[in-house]
Amino acid sequence: METLSSLIMIFIGAALINNFVLHYFVGICPFLGVSKRVDTAFGMGLAVIFVILIASTLSWLFTFFILRPMAPIPVWIWQVAGGNPETTVDLSVLSYIIYIFVIASSVQFVEMYVRKFQPALYESFGVFLPLITTNCAILFACLEIMKNLQDPTMLWGLHEALILALGGGIGFLIAITLMAGIRAELDLCDVPKSLKGAGIALIVAGIMAMAFMGFTGMDRGVEQALSALGSR
Protein backbone atom coordinates (compact mmCIF):
# COMPACT_ATOMS: atom_id res chain seq x y z
CA MET A 1 0.00 0.00 0.00
CA GLU A 2 2.85 2.30 0.88
CA THR A 3 4.42 1.84 -2.58
CA LEU A 4 1.13 2.25 -4.40
CA SER A 5 0.28 5.48 -2.65
CA SER A 6 3.76 6.88 -3.31
CA LEU A 7 3.37 5.97 -6.99
CA ILE A 8 0.01 7.74 -7.11
CA MET A 9 1.62 10.76 -5.48
CA ILE A 10 4.44 10.81 -8.06
CA PHE A 11 1.90 10.56 -10.89
CA ILE A 12 -0.38 13.33 -9.66
CA GLY A 13 2.59 15.50 -8.79
CA ALA A 14 4.06 15.25 -12.28
CA ALA A 15 0.77 15.51 -14.19
CA LEU A 16 -1.06 18.26 -12.32
CA ILE A 17 0.61 19.86 -9.31
CA ASN A 18 4.06 20.31 -10.78
CA ASN A 19 2.98 20.22 -14.41
CA PHE A 20 6.13 20.32 -16.56
CA VAL A 21 4.86 23.06 -18.84
CA LEU A 22 2.82 25.19 -16.49
CA HIS A 23 4.85 24.88 -13.30
CA TYR A 24 8.46 24.45 -14.41
CA PHE A 25 8.02 26.13 -17.85
CA VAL A 26 9.97 23.50 -19.74
CA GLY A 27 8.85 22.35 -23.18
CA ILE A 28 7.54 25.77 -24.10
CA CYS A 29 8.64 25.55 -27.73
CA PRO A 30 6.19 22.84 -28.83
CA PHE A 31 3.64 24.17 -26.32
CA LEU A 32 3.49 27.49 -28.20
CA GLY A 33 4.56 26.29 -31.63
CA VAL A 34 2.27 23.32 -32.28
CA SER A 35 -0.80 24.49 -30.36
CA LYS A 36 -2.70 26.15 -33.18
CA ARG A 37 -5.01 23.23 -33.95
CA VAL A 38 -6.40 20.72 -31.48
CA ASP A 39 -5.71 17.62 -33.57
CA THR A 40 -2.03 18.38 -34.22
CA ALA A 41 -1.61 19.42 -30.58
CA PHE A 42 -3.07 16.10 -29.46
CA GLY A 43 -0.72 14.24 -31.80
CA MET A 44 2.22 16.18 -30.42
CA GLY A 45 1.14 15.33 -26.86
CA LEU A 46 0.94 11.61 -27.69
CA ALA A 47 4.36 11.75 -29.35
CA VAL A 48 5.79 13.41 -26.24
CA ILE A 49 4.34 10.68 -24.00
CA PHE A 50 5.86 8.06 -26.28
CA VAL A 51 9.32 9.65 -26.37
CA ILE A 52 9.36 10.54 -22.69
CA LEU A 53 8.68 6.90 -21.75
CA ILE A 54 11.51 5.63 -23.94
CA ALA A 55 13.85 8.36 -22.77
CA SER A 56 13.20 7.86 -19.08
CA THR A 57 13.53 4.09 -19.31
CA LEU A 58 16.93 4.53 -20.91
CA SER A 59 17.99 7.31 -18.61
CA TRP A 60 17.01 5.26 -15.55
CA LEU A 61 19.09 2.35 -16.85
CA PHE A 62 22.07 4.56 -17.62
CA THR A 63 21.81 6.45 -14.36
CA PHE A 64 21.39 3.36 -12.25
CA PHE A 65 24.22 1.39 -13.83
CA ILE A 66 26.65 4.11 -14.93
CA LEU A 67 26.01 7.63 -13.77
CA ARG A 68 25.01 7.57 -10.08
CA PRO A 69 27.70 7.61 -7.38
CA MET A 70 29.16 4.14 -6.93
CA ALA A 71 27.26 2.77 -9.92
CA PRO A 72 28.15 -0.87 -10.61
CA ILE A 73 29.65 -0.59 -14.11
CA PRO A 74 32.26 2.15 -13.53
CA VAL A 75 33.17 0.59 -10.19
CA TRP A 76 33.71 -2.72 -11.90
CA ILE A 77 35.81 -1.12 -14.65
CA TRP A 78 37.81 0.74 -12.01
CA GLN A 79 38.51 -2.42 -10.04
CA VAL A 80 39.39 -4.48 -13.11
CA ALA A 81 41.83 -1.72 -14.04
CA GLY A 82 43.36 -2.22 -10.61
CA GLY A 83 42.20 0.97 -8.93
CA ASN A 84 41.82 1.47 -5.21
CA PRO A 85 38.41 -0.01 -4.17
CA GLU A 86 38.01 2.72 -1.51
CA THR A 87 37.86 5.53 -4.11
CA THR A 88 34.44 7.09 -4.75
CA VAL A 89 33.52 6.70 -8.40
CA ASP A 90 30.98 9.32 -9.52
CA LEU A 91 30.23 9.95 -13.19
CA SER A 92 27.21 12.23 -12.70
CA VAL A 93 29.05 15.04 -14.54
CA LEU A 94 28.33 13.09 -17.70
CA SER A 95 24.57 13.08 -17.15
CA TYR A 96 23.58 15.85 -19.59
CA ILE A 97 25.75 14.71 -22.47
CA ILE A 98 24.75 11.08 -22.06
CA TYR A 99 21.04 11.84 -21.77
CA ILE A 100 21.00 13.94 -24.92
CA PHE A 101 23.13 11.44 -26.77
CA VAL A 102 21.07 8.45 -25.71
CA ILE A 103 17.68 10.11 -26.21
CA ALA A 104 18.59 11.44 -29.65
CA SER A 105 19.96 8.16 -30.94
CA SER A 106 17.20 6.02 -29.46
CA VAL A 107 14.51 8.25 -30.92
CA GLN A 108 16.27 8.04 -34.29
CA PHE A 109 16.21 4.27 -33.94
CA VAL A 110 12.52 4.21 -32.99
CA GLU A 111 11.70 6.55 -35.88
CA MET A 112 13.42 4.23 -38.36
CA TYR A 113 11.62 1.22 -36.87
CA VAL A 114 8.21 2.88 -36.98
CA ARG A 115 8.76 4.12 -40.51
CA LYS A 116 9.56 0.63 -41.73
CA PHE A 117 7.01 -1.46 -39.85
CA GLN A 118 4.19 0.90 -38.83
CA PRO A 119 3.72 3.34 -41.74
CA ALA A 120 0.29 4.45 -40.48
CA LEU A 121 1.71 5.36 -37.08
CA TYR A 122 4.59 7.16 -38.80
CA GLU A 123 2.11 9.19 -40.84
CA SER A 124 0.27 10.33 -37.73
CA PHE A 125 3.14 11.37 -35.48
CA GLY A 126 6.41 10.31 -37.04
CA VAL A 127 7.00 13.87 -38.22
CA PHE A 128 6.91 15.15 -34.65
CA LEU A 129 9.56 12.70 -33.39
CA PRO A 130 12.69 14.47 -34.68
CA LEU A 131 11.32 17.76 -33.37
CA ILE A 132 11.02 16.56 -29.77
CA THR A 133 14.09 14.38 -29.40
CA THR A 134 15.98 16.91 -27.36
CA ASN A 135 12.98 18.81 -26.10
CA CYS A 136 13.64 20.27 -22.66
CA ALA A 137 10.53 18.62 -21.14
CA ILE A 138 12.04 15.24 -21.92
CA LEU A 139 15.48 16.18 -20.67
CA PHE A 140 13.82 17.58 -17.57
CA ALA A 141 12.15 14.23 -16.83
CA CYS A 142 15.54 12.51 -17.12
CA LEU A 143 17.18 15.02 -14.77
CA GLU A 144 14.33 14.61 -12.28
CA ILE A 145 14.93 10.86 -12.32
CA MET A 146 18.65 11.40 -11.83
CA LYS A 147 17.95 13.63 -8.82
CA ASN A 148 16.11 10.76 -7.18
CA LEU A 149 18.88 8.27 -7.91
CA GLN A 150 21.75 10.23 -6.41
CA ASP A 151 20.73 9.73 -2.80
CA PRO A 152 21.60 6.07 -1.98
CA THR A 153 19.07 5.95 0.88
CA MET A 154 16.03 6.39 -1.37
CA LEU A 155 16.83 4.88 -4.74
CA TRP A 156 14.05 5.07 -7.28
CA GLY A 157 13.17 1.89 -9.11
CA LEU A 158 12.36 1.72 -12.81
CA HIS A 159 8.63 1.67 -12.06
CA GLU A 160 8.82 4.99 -10.22
CA ALA A 161 10.78 6.55 -13.06
CA LEU A 162 8.22 5.33 -15.58
CA ILE A 163 5.31 6.65 -13.53
CA LEU A 164 6.99 10.06 -13.33
CA ALA A 165 7.52 10.05 -17.10
CA LEU A 166 3.93 8.98 -17.78
CA GLY A 167 2.62 11.66 -15.43
CA GLY A 168 4.80 14.32 -17.03
CA GLY A 169 3.77 13.24 -20.52
CA ILE A 170 0.06 13.24 -19.66
CA GLY A 171 0.47 16.62 -17.99
CA PHE A 172 2.03 17.93 -21.22
CA LEU A 173 -0.81 16.42 -23.25
CA ILE A 174 -3.40 18.09 -21.00
CA ALA A 175 -1.65 21.45 -21.14
CA ILE A 176 -1.06 21.55 -24.90
CA THR A 177 -4.59 20.31 -25.74
CA LEU A 178 -6.18 22.92 -23.46
CA MET A 179 -3.96 25.56 -25.00
CA ALA A 180 -4.89 24.54 -28.55
CA GLY A 181 -8.58 24.65 -27.68
CA ILE A 182 -8.25 28.12 -26.22
CA ARG A 183 -6.23 29.35 -29.18
CA ALA A 184 -8.80 28.00 -31.63
CA GLU A 185 -11.43 30.07 -29.79
CA LEU A 186 -9.08 33.07 -29.77
CA ASP A 187 -9.16 33.17 -33.57
CA LEU A 188 -12.76 34.34 -33.31
CA CYS A 189 -12.03 37.01 -30.72
CA ASP A 190 -11.32 40.66 -31.28
CA VAL A 191 -7.76 40.75 -29.97
CA PRO A 192 -6.02 44.15 -29.97
CA LYS A 193 -3.64 44.37 -32.90
CA SER A 194 -0.54 44.72 -30.75
CA LEU A 195 -1.26 41.47 -28.89
CA LYS A 196 -2.12 39.26 -31.86
CA GLY A 197 -0.23 35.98 -32.23
CA ALA A 198 2.51 35.20 -29.75
CA GLY A 199 1.60 37.99 -27.34
CA ILE A 200 -1.88 36.74 -26.52
CA ALA A 201 -0.61 33.12 -26.53
CA LEU A 202 1.90 33.97 -23.78
CA ILE A 203 -0.76 35.77 -21.75
CA VAL A 204 -3.04 32.74 -22.07
CA ALA A 205 -0.17 30.47 -20.99
CA GLY A 206 0.42 32.66 -17.95
CA ILE A 207 -3.25 32.58 -16.94
CA MET A 208 -3.29 28.81 -17.40
CA ALA A 209 -0.20 28.54 -15.18
CA MET A 210 -1.97 30.57 -12.49
CA ALA A 211 -5.01 28.30 -12.80
CA PHE A 212 -2.81 25.24 -12.35
CA MET A 213 -1.41 26.78 -9.16
CA GLY A 214 -4.82 25.85 -7.75
CA PHE A 215 -3.57 22.27 -7.58
CA THR A 216 -0.91 23.25 -5.04
CA GLY A 217 -1.68 21.64 -1.72
CA MET A 218 -3.73 18.94 -3.37
CA ASP A 219 -0.83 16.54 -2.73
CA ARG A 220 -1.26 16.77 1.03
CA GLY A 221 -4.98 16.06 0.79
CA VAL A 222 -4.45 13.09 -1.50
CA GLU A 223 -1.75 11.80 0.85
CA GLN A 224 -4.08 12.00 3.85
CA ALA A 225 -6.87 10.32 1.93
CA LEU A 226 -4.56 7.53 0.82
CA SER A 227 -3.14 6.97 4.30
CA ALA A 228 -6.66 6.91 5.76
CA LEU A 229 -7.54 4.33 3.12
CA GLY A 230 -4.45 2.31 4.01
CA SER A 231 -5.05 2.32 7.78
CA ARG A 232 -8.63 1.12 7.42
Binding site: P74, V89, I97, F101, V102, S105, F109
Partner: peptide, 25 residues
Protein backbone atom coordinates in the same frame (compact mmCIF):
# COMPACT_ATOMS: atom_id res chain seq x y z
CA UNK B 1 39.38 8.73 -11.98
CA UNK B 2 36.42 10.64 -13.35
CA UNK B 3 38.22 11.73 -16.51
CA UNK B 4 39.49 8.27 -17.38
CA UNK B 5 36.17 6.59 -16.68
CA UNK B 6 34.17 9.28 -18.46
CA UNK B 7 36.31 8.94 -21.55
CA UNK B 8 35.99 5.17 -21.48
CA UNK B 9 32.22 5.24 -20.99
CA UNK B 10 31.64 7.79 -23.74
CA UNK B 11 33.84 5.98 -26.25
CA UNK B 12 32.11 2.67 -25.55
CA UNK B 13 28.69 4.31 -25.78
CA UNK B 14 29.52 6.06 -29.05
CA UNK B 15 30.74 2.84 -30.62
CA UNK B 16 27.68 0.92 -29.43
CA UNK B 17 25.16 3.51 -30.57
CA UNK B 18 26.93 4.06 -33.87
CA UNK B 19 26.83 0.34 -34.56
CA UNK B 20 23.17 0.01 -33.62
CA UNK B 21 22.09 3.01 -35.72
CA UNK B 22 24.22 1.92 -38.67
CA UNK B 23 22.64 -1.52 -38.54
CA UNK B 24 19.15 -0.05 -38.20
CA UNK B 25 19.74 2.24 -41.16
Amino acid sequence: VTVILAAAVLVLLAIAMGWVLGWAN
